[in-house]
Amino acid sequence: MATIIVQRPTLKWHERWFITPFLKGMRITLGHAIAILLRKKKVTMQYPEEKWDANLPEHYRGAPALVTDEHGRERCVSCQLCEFICPPRAIKIIPEEIPSEDKWAKVEKRPKLFNIDMIRCIYCGMCEEVCPEQAIFLRKDYAITGLSRAEMVHDKTKLYEIGGVRTGLVNKWNELK
């Protein structure tokens, strides 16, 4: 490893005795304080009253959610890729056969149980990346609260509730394939 020797600056006597550096530092902090007090600068937002929602960037990663397609069908086919990829292991899926009486029977499986533990979730977006069916998306929700641990586990219903409907291409029915 290359060693880089940093030349220390040679200090003048008043610097060595911390006189001028001290005053300089005090001036800087005082400047910040005055700027804040005179409302010249505003950095902090008063949260519940003021929100940042409007300014959230396009790529913001919030709570993950499941979506249905325009036909109201669950896009998730229970492939469990997201469950495997999830770094904190926040996702739990139990797949089931789609019963024959169902409209979409014979096509694929569907999740019987799809839980995301939001206490564990780290909002990494891996599930979104990995999903072959484009069934899971990260929403812009950030205020995910609850009063108990159980409440913080988003089940299938909750996930679809957050996710809503998503129109667009679904690979499995792509005739071209």
Binding site: H32, A33, I36, K41
Partner: peptide
């Protein structure tokens, strides 16, 4: 409070 003010916080 003062530390916040100095550090541009609230």
């Amino acid at each position: 409070r003062i530390s916040a003010i100095i550090q541009d916080r609230v």
